[in-house]
Design a protein around this nucleic acid. Sequence first.
DNA 1: ATGTCTGCAAAGCTTTTGCACTGAT
DNA 2: ATCAGTGCAAAAGCTTTGCAGACAT
Lengths: 162, 162
Amino acid sequence: MAEKKQVSTRLLENVKKVLTDYLEVHQHRKTPERYAILEEIYSRTGHFDVEALFMYMKDKNYRVSRATLYNTMDLLLDAKLIVKHQFGKNIAQFERVYGNRPHDHLICLECGEVSEVDTEIEATVKDVAERAEFTVAHHSLYIYGMCKKCKTSKVGSLENNN
Amino acid sequence: MAEKKQVSTRLLENVKKVLTDYLEVHQHRKTPERYAILEEIYSRTGHFDVEALFMYMKDKNYRVSRATLYNTMDLLLDAKLIVKHQFGKNIAQFERVYGNRPHDHLICLECGEVSEVDTEIEATVKDVAERAEFTVAHHSLYIYGMCKKCKTSKVGSLENNN
DNA sequence: ATGTCTGCAAAGCTTTTGCACTGAT
DNA sequence: ATCAGTGCAAAAGCTTTGCAGACAT
């Protein structure tokens, strides 16, 4: 417990440093809101949308406006501290990314659950893109289908209800 | 020319057949709107959003409501005649898919251009997913970065303006 | 002191929904 | 003759914008 806490404290210090450097380089202000949002994001794992983040912070009695959340998302995206996803819905999903190993996403069409997998397609992606003289910044692989949980709860009715 | 026309006529017949079968199996009505929309989509290549489709059809004096377009998109998605993308924006992009070979997408962060590449990650994707006991329906790989065109128009200022 | 950033509310856009009418079956 | 499907307009939901005030520099 104590050890786990310490690790995440270390992570938090690191990402704060990244943010500080970013803000300084770009001559943006170091507002308490920006650090509070970053802290909230890195105190969690998994995906979240802006509305959820808004509620999380509200629950902790830290009032931030949605406008600031959206602004800060752009900032953190640019600082490469988070990534943005659109898993087929019109709601942007975000995910903290500093210190995480690269991974791709399995999205269950039945229950909506998103889980992570390692595919190691990095090299292939880079190779293919470069053949098209395209410089890769990042990539997203979304794999849609049916998760284990939903398969077991649907035995016998798989082919008939499409 | 004549040959090319014939090929696309053949394609059109095929997709109409797929739609007809789908509608019959699912006991949906064969409305003229549904066929007109399908025809419009398959008379084009590349990506489009609902608003663009609406304008295309309007220009041809075929009046369809946006509601019907959205409904029909769902139908065509289910019939696997189109696929849906969300390239980082909040606008759903669609693409006809029948008769096309599988491909992935290069999205230029500079100019927004979307182009296609073959990556052949199909097998890897399936393999990785199945190890997680996940049954793959389909997948989307989006590669973000800078296209050839934008690179050449930005020589010398690549590292400094991030 | 200056001007960026925040909060709030309004506006914007895409998508969905409700309802009366139309037309495929 | 039914009732699914269409069109229209209103509503909904996420995101952006405008502006006044707050606060990091």
